[in-house]
Amino acid sequence: MFSLNFDISEFLTQYWQKKPILIKNAFPNFEDLISADELAGLACEESVASRVVVTKPNDWQIVEGPFEDYDQFGDKNWQLLVQALNHWHPDSSDFINAFRFIPDWRFDDLMVSFATPGGGVGAHIDNYDVFIIQGEGQRHWTVGDKGQYAPKNNDPTTPLIEGFEPIIDAVLEKGDLLYIPPGYPHQGQTLTLAMSYSIGFRAPSQQELFSELADSLIDNNSGLKRFTSSNEPKLASQISTSHQQDMMALITELAANPDNYQAMLGKMLSQNRFELDLCEPEEPYSVEDITDYLSQGALLYRIGGLKLLHIEGDSVQRIFVNGEAFEYPAHIEADIKDLCENFRFSNPQALALTQTPATQQLLLSLLNLGYFYFGE
């Protein structure tokens, strides 16, 4: 189990989305989730998102995976990054669980880095919250304050910047944690062979929300109300202030109606940016199969990265799983909460879930979609 060695309430009040903080020994007796060799092997897989960043004088080269070998990169000035380790490495679930004081809908992925001395990505700014946890080895991190920074090489499309004055300047060692909110420039440089773990949390932008809402309205053939006016401008060529405001009020009216946005948000926020490692059965499970597996002592697992979300105050009794809505009767609400809150279930817990036919049918659907699976 992984336990954080700091006051979570204090962190949420004083630091979360407000300012960065370095917490030494945040994970006492921390042990790496995966070895460097195992990570390198994962990056050989086509379905795993990976890249190598090579540090060059005043520049960086990005080589996209998968990789057959790493000899070409030498023994310094590069790092291997593997996205969404939690999708492919079940043992990472306990580590992820330690950060669930932040809601699941924000969670993006667990990225893992193996870096050689001199490896890094340069000064840059992210648009998401990130927790960086140091494994084996040492990395030197600097974090600057929010401000206006010149893009690297005057390239407006790059997150890299020319530089900053640090407000945090420290060497991270095993178990140390660095939290960086969106908008704060930062840079890490590897001092020794090192493993590090980045847990990212994202939130949708206005652009993304508008796009999703528009798609949802089109799919449901809704949002058809048109603008009407009570007065007209004196100039034929003018779009009056009142007309502008009344047209924008149509959007406000749409956004104020939960029927227009709840399903859209549930579907949008339950989807994942990275490929899921689905465990679809060769032949569809039946209720009898579930009973048989559990009678033999099987445990029940949720696949890594899968989000099960519910909307507070939803107008429909449903959960959202990987962009799809699943309705359920009110009397299995407690079972639904268990399914949403837990990554794995002991045999007695799984047996308890199957005692109610409605829960059993929902679980059967999730198993056949490859979202849950049986294991030892």
Rank of each mutant, 00 (worst) to 15 (best):
I239L: 15
E253M: 08
Y261V: 03
D259G: 14
S211K: 10
L224W: 00
P233S: 06
I239E: 11
I218P: 00
T228M: 03
R226I: 01
Q262D: 10
T228A: 04
D215C: 12
F210S: 12
E275T: 11
L217D: 01
I239S: 12
T241C: 09
L209T: 02
L235H: 10
D259E: 15
S230A: 01
N257T: 09
L254E: 00
E275V: 09
A256Y: 12
L269M: 13
Q238A: 07
M264K: 04
L209P: 00
F210Y: 12
F210V: 12
H243R: 07
A249I: 02
L254V: 01
S229V: 02
S211C: 08
A255K: 04
H243D: 05
M248C: 14
E212D: 15
R273G: 04
L209G: 02
E212G: 12
T241W: 08
D215M: 11
I239M: 14
Q245M: 12
N257G: 05
I218C: 00
E253F: 07
S216N: 12
A256G: 13
S270R: 05
M248W: 14
E232N: 06
H243I: 03
E208N: 10
K267P: 08
Q206W: 13
L269F: 11
I239C: 13
N221P: 01
A249Q: 09
D215I: 07
Q262T: 06
A236E: 11
Q207H: 15
L269Y: 03
L235V: 04
L269R: 05
L269V: 07
M268Y: 08
F227M: 05
L224A: 02
A203F: 11
P258A: 02
E253S: 11
Q238T: 07
M264G: 01
S222T: 08
D259R: 15
P233F: 00
S240H: 06
A255P: 02
F227I: 02
S216C: 13
N221E: 07
N272R: 15
M248H: 13
F227D: 02
H243S: 10
Q238S: 08
S240F: 03
G266F: 04
N260C: 06
M247N: 13
Q207S: 15
K267I: 12
Q206Y: 13
T228K: 03
D219T: 03
S211L: 08
R226L: 10
N220L: 10
M248F: 15
E275Y: 09
L254K: 00
T252D: 14
A256K: 15
N260A: 02
L276K: 09
D215A: 11
D215T: 08
T252W: 09
P204R: 03
A263N: 13
Q245R: 14
T252F: 08
E275H: 07
S222E: 06
F227Q: 05
M264E: 04
S222Y: 04
Q245P: 07
Y261D: 05
A256T: 14
A263C: 15
N231A: 04
P204Q: 05
Q244W: 11
L269W: 02
L224H: 01
K267S: 14
N260R: 01
T252S: 12
L235T: 07
A256F: 13
N272K: 15
Y261L: 09
I218L: 03
